[in-house]
Design a protein around this nucleic acid. Structure first.
Lengths: 386, 386
DNA sequence: CTGTTAGCGCATTCAG
DNA sequence: CTGAATGCGCTAACAG
């Protein structure tokens, strides 16, 4: 009906508007930039009308080219599949919106090569800054960016040689919080499961904090080795670290097998209160309480937690939570549904702060690199509560 | 250590490179555009070196301004929180990558106003095309875009007055597939749960197909009214439509209450095979099979399914699947974990095709608006299988 | 208050 | 094969 099948009628330019309004381009430009006080009401009205008539929309590219800033910032995400990323993104968007920035979202999909290329692309589009949730970038890759180049702020992870602002979860505190919670609830055989550390600082920090707490209570957890062969110390709780390389099915298989052995050894139904709430089943579980070690899994993030949950369900049935407790950093949408306890990250705020930091940097505020560590929130669910 | 703390040293321009290489800008430009055959090997080498030395990176904005195309396309997403969107996005990214396009991702976060503004913003950045997963845009909003303006392709949903290519799930077929599956498995009281139809064509199509199938087997499902007061026909299966307005907690509450009544009335343990796999519990369920109506919920998409699952779990306990079967269009990550059956959309391909369509349009291929309907895949899980 | 003049960084005729 | 000139759409000094 009211379609406009006309061939693209060439967008109106500032020149067209000037002509239409019977004036010079400068005045149009001034109008566009809100310098109203310098325009006679009469001229201003004419301009307004002309713009309206021509449906004029200033070309941001041209503006950017001229004034040297285009209000674009890059947002490099390692993995949009991780709910964490999407949540951070919401914060980023809100902040950008508030600050008049436009985020260019780049999704590396867990490919280091992609990451490199996107960074280069962003540079090429002359973004004014980048906020990076790096996957495997090294200092060299970011060099043109963080160093003498455009300002950058890191999210969740540090990049080795790179000095830049960074904002993320207080990993130490979060891991301690989780570990202590498990300990306090009587679990004495805790497995910290994490993806390969690689360059990801947050993973390292979480695991380190976990080990520290465990060693404090008598249990010692060993090296970072992929096989988590780290037996506990004296009579206290035992802590283990298990590396789960989600990218390699074979490796996952192996790691999970090791875990299974431990779970089987821990004694049947020796675990958590379970999420089974019908009375018959419940009492059956309670009867065996105390037999064997109380085993708990501490997932370093949501993807790991999901992998574990899927495996456990496949192996032990829908009832798996009766055997093992699961605690995860990150609080994915299925956590509530499945009753696992979680440590929720302040994702929205992380994203928001990141943009604020970047904005300050863009505006030229010079400070030494800042770290902004935000606290996580423990959400106790059936999986780990007595 | 190897940091580069120098103050931003003004990026090299084509002029700098020309000077450095002792030649004119034209040759540099030619080099950049791959017109190698028109450059003496000697000159070419010098240019290469100069570029390297200056770490020159052509300014895309400037190029875009000049040649009138910037290789940017807009990707407007209604809701990134919906896994569907992220998956489609992966396809979009892959295709863009293959075609040398750069997607500007805009997230409307379920706000119509945002949507409008982003569309306007994209226009302002002179993107060459838009792929739109619209929330509530109307023809007028897209006018400057689809009509005489930049080319657009719709994803998942149509926009009323707008003629444009569209790619998405074959909703009719998918809804039929799901409904038939439930029927075939003996469910005789089926509730189709969907968000408010509003302008979202896919919701309407799915529900319509559902009703059609149901009416075919004797059950009739009534009007679109938010209270789903639609009793079945003769002695066959009964079909109901329940509208769940996720944005309004109060409305959700009301709708769920209605559902609860139906479930309670359907008789205890009259439902699915349940996901409980330990033998004791299972036999207890099987004993009562056949008593009361077999009730099943058909969620029109993942957000709805999640809402339902959470509610059911809260109300009937971890064991809820013993009472109600749940089938969902969309196959979220927690589906496997929880054992609900699902109809997986070919999300990646949807995204990929969308970009291909758009690309053709950008390249000037003129055709009448095309619809690309891709088939969904039924993934049967414990929830609905006997 | 308002218009004129220069470029921003690059691609493109069009002559060498 | 190569380079000088022109202008994309817009802003920023400078004059009126």
């Amino acid at each position: 009906m009211s379609t406009t099948p006309l061939a693209a009628p060439r967008r109106a330019t500032i020149t067209d508007v000037a002509r239409e309004a019977g004036t010079g381009k400068t005045s149009i430009s001034r109008y566009l930039n809100g310098e109203m006080s310098v325009l006679s009401p009469e001229l201003r009205a004419r301009i307004e009308a002309a713009i309206e008539r021509l449906n004029y929309q200033p070309n941001q590219m041209a503006r950017g080219l001229k004034r040297g800033r285009n209000r674009l910032i890059g947002m490099l995400l390692a993995d949009l599949t991780n709910p964490y990323s999407v949540e951070v993104l919401q914060g980023v968007e809100a902040a950008c919106h508030a600050l008049g920035l436009m985020p260019l979202i780049c999704h590396a999909a867990n490919e280091v090569e992609m990451e490199r290329r996107y960074l280069q692309l962003l540079t090429t589009y002359r973004v004014e800054g980048v906020i990076v949730n790096a996957l495997g970038v090294r200092e060299e890759t970011l060099r043109p960016v963080g160093g003498g180049g455009i300002p950058a702020v890191l999210v969740d992870r540090l990049v080795d040689g790179l000095v830049a602002d960074m904002v993320g979860l207080d990993n130490r505190a979060a891991a301690e919080l989780g570990t202590r919670h498990l300990l306090d609830n009587g679990f004495d055989d805790i497995w910290f499961v994490v993806q390969p550390f690689e360059q990801v600082s947050s993973r390292q920090l979480r695991e380190a904090a976990f080990r520290e707490v465990m060693s404090g209570v008598g249990g010692a957890s060993g090296a970072h080795g992929p096989s988590g062969k780290d037996e506990g110390g004296k009579g206290g709780a035992r802590g283990h670290t298990l590396v789960l390389n989600l990218a390699e099915p074979a490796a996952v298989e192996r790691a999970l097998a090791e875990l299974d052995r431990a779970i089987d050894a821990a004694g049947d139904l020796g675990g958590a209160a379970a999420s089974v709430t019908d009375n018959a089943t419940r009492s059956a579980i309670d009867r065996t309480g105390g037999k064997g070690r109380r085993i708990a899994l501490f997932a370093a993030n949501a993807p790991v937690a999901l992998c574990l949950a899927l495996h456990l369900k496949a192996r032990y049935g829908a009832d798996w939570q009766a055997r093992v407790a699961l605690l995860s950093i990150d609080d994915p949408e299925w956590a509530e549904l499945t009753g696992i306890t979680a440590i929720r990250q302040p994702t929205y705020e992380i994203g928001y702060r990141a943009v604020e930091f970047l904005h300050e940097r863009i505006e030229g505020i010079q400070t030494t690199a800042r770290d902004c560590l935000l606290p996580g929130e423990l959400i106790v669910r059936a999986s780990t509560s007595r």
